[in-house]
Design a protein around this nucleic acid. Structure first.
Lengths: 361, 361
DNA sequence: CTGAAAGCGCTTACAG
DNA sequence: CTGAAAGCGCTTACAG
């Protein structure tokens, strides 16, 4: 009935609990022979470490986190997820230090921060990459020093990390396409707006969308880059609806849906063209209600942050192996459930202590 | 920097930690004067109890759970959610006892179980109601003995419970209707299948659906009872498609979607009639792929179970207040994301320890 | 390499 | 009503 403890193992083998503890947590200072005996007995007795007792007694875990200070709408959500985990785990003897880099295009800042994390003997590190990313060597330095690294938000081309947590972009594109097919007429065309064709997750969304949308129809699709600039998105929308008289829908796979909606309104096209948007912003509510935006693909960045630090914690404390990549599944939002998701995002009381995980299972 | 502990409070007031502990956990045996001084000082020092230390030292929490043994597809999911929480919280010194009642229509079995829970001095109780429910007096007996009760799955008409965790049926109906409007043609009619018109959550789904579907169209809708019987659902479908030559969709708000799909196939109507189904079953996969089922409203019963026991635990240990009712928001599933949800449900490795909650926030 | 001891922050019988 | 002490299951300097 009662679970076996290290005390039970120690008694069984007539040794001290300290030795058992050291062996089981893979520390040095135990002979191989002893270690094997202990592991064998632990397995035999069905021993599982008690995490509660463990976190009460071990010394504090130090996590370093680095992210851009720009784009708070996005990176702020990742941070919110991390903070949420941290506050839930406040009793678990874990502490985190944020460092913010000011440029999206420079990697020297990242390198400096990473160095300081090494000097501070952080137990683990989370990196939210910006655009340019040629510091994979430095990630390898961390991993050589046995400091595990989790990449969060979007992946890096290389570097030795334990996992990368990001959205399932391809599925996002597919879902958008599946809905789009229901909404647009048979002979209408469709446009896709993304930020940048060179970014892998943007490309994945497009590929997902095209694969699904064109699967059993002859849907004609054009792809446009907004550079994640609202003004570009506005002008582009105007141009697209002028150039394509039979356009029926736009999939805005990036954050500029508000400008797109405005442009549609200003040109009296809201009845003709439907929008599938990405993620939730306060300003979207109005367009969702009006039916200009017919659906949203929500890629829960808060959840991404939560999962990232949870994975790191589990790796550090339980030596839990990580999948090479953790993809967060996008959620489908339409008019009627917009409110619940929206209030979920803004709810302050959701910071109250929470116990049991929503790791993607 | 370091958080205040009861030791700090005791030192500050020159008293023993035992007294501080007793006062803070609202136990007897502390003078009012002392209690107030301690509470004041605790607040002043920003004290928060360390839940980790607490659960290591307190005696084991005993939870009693009673549910029907019938309908394992449904109640089994609620149980799975509870079990998931329990396994995540295995180190938290908490134990549960399940009791199963064999009839959906008798309340004497419930009363017997509840009595035995009282005798066993359970710290808290979870009740999953069946159909007949005239044991609210007994729920009040529990609450008089300071045994908190959580109702799970569907609510009871009365009785003093701390909360009830169930699906948001009205929203489920609304979502089904919003999608249905996209799918069916302007002049087509629609049918709704529910289990029983007398059950409040079934009625709520219908009301949600009607309110949304008829809002800005002249959609004609007929409501049918399947009695949750696959054969009835099959016959009914046959009848409905015969009687309504222009029917375009059926919202199956109950668990019989497989029979409905079969009936459509057997009568060569899959191209004419689209289904919006409820919840995920293995047998649905085929019909989702084929496009017979165009959308599913998933009301995560596993999550309901998880949230129910989490709420009870939090109430017991932290005295966290509960909302009178906790409604789980339904998720929208279409062809492209069916697989992720399906695998999520069946995944065994998701029972591995998990830390941080998905309580509805 | 191994062990004895102190400690993490709390609760809980048991004395006084 | 209050306090001293043992204990929950583990880790970690420190001796030997």
């Amino acid at each position: 009935m009662k679970r076996a403890t290290i005390k039970d193992i120690a008694k069984e083998l007539n040794i001290s609990v300290g030795t058992v503890s050291k062996a089981l947590s893979e520390k040095n200072g135990v002979s191989n022979e002893m270690r094997e005996k202990i592991n064998y007995t632990a397995k035999k007795m069905g021993y599982h470490v008690n995490r509660v007792a463990q976190s009460l007694s071990r010394k504090q875990l130090k996590i370093g986190i680095v992210m851009p200070s720009l784009w708070p709408e996005y990176y702020g959500c990742l941070k919110k997820g991390i903070d949420k985990f941290l506050s839930n785990m406040a009793d678990y003897n874990i502490t985190a230090q944020y460092r913010f880099v000011s440029s999206l295009y420079s990697s020297t800042e990242y390198i400096d921060v990473l160095d300081s994390f090494i000097q501070q003997k952080m137990n683990g590190v989370i990196i939210c990459p910006a655009f340019i990313s040629d510091y994979s060597d430095h990630i390898n330095v961390l991993s050589e020093k046995n400091i595990p690294v989790v990449i969060l938000g979007s992946d890096l081309p290389s570097g030795n990390r334990i996992t990368c947590v990001r959205e399932d972009s391809c599925l996002a594109g597919k879902l958008a396409a599946e809905i789009m097919k229901w909404i647009v007429g048979e002979n209408e065309t469709v446009a896709v707006f993304i930020g940048n064709k060179d970014m892998s997750d943007h490309r994945e969304k497009v590929n997902g969308f095209l694969g699904e949308f064109c699967s059993n129809t002859a849907g004609i699709v054009n792809i446009y880059e907004t550079q994640d600039d609202p003004e570009v998105a506005y002008i582009l929308t105007k141009k697209v609806i002028k150039d394509n008289p039979v356009i029926g829908g736009i999939y805005v796979a990036t954050g500029n849906s508000i400008s797109v909606c405005k442009a549609l309104e200003d040109n009296n096209c809201v009845d003709r063209v439907s929008i599938i948007a990405t993620d939730i912003f306060p300003e979207l509510a109005e367009y969702v209600k009006k039916g200009v935006i017919r659906g949203l693909i929500f890629q829960d960045p808060v959840k991404q942050g939560k999962i990232a630090i949870e994975s790191l914690y589990r790796y550090l404390v339980f030596r839990d192996p990580c999948d090479n990549e953790i993809l967060i599944r996008p959620q489908l939002i339409i008019r009627n459930n917009f409110d619940v998701y929206y209030s979920m995002m803004n709810d302050e009381h959701d910071t109250k202590g929470i116990l049991c995980s929503e790791s993607e299972d």
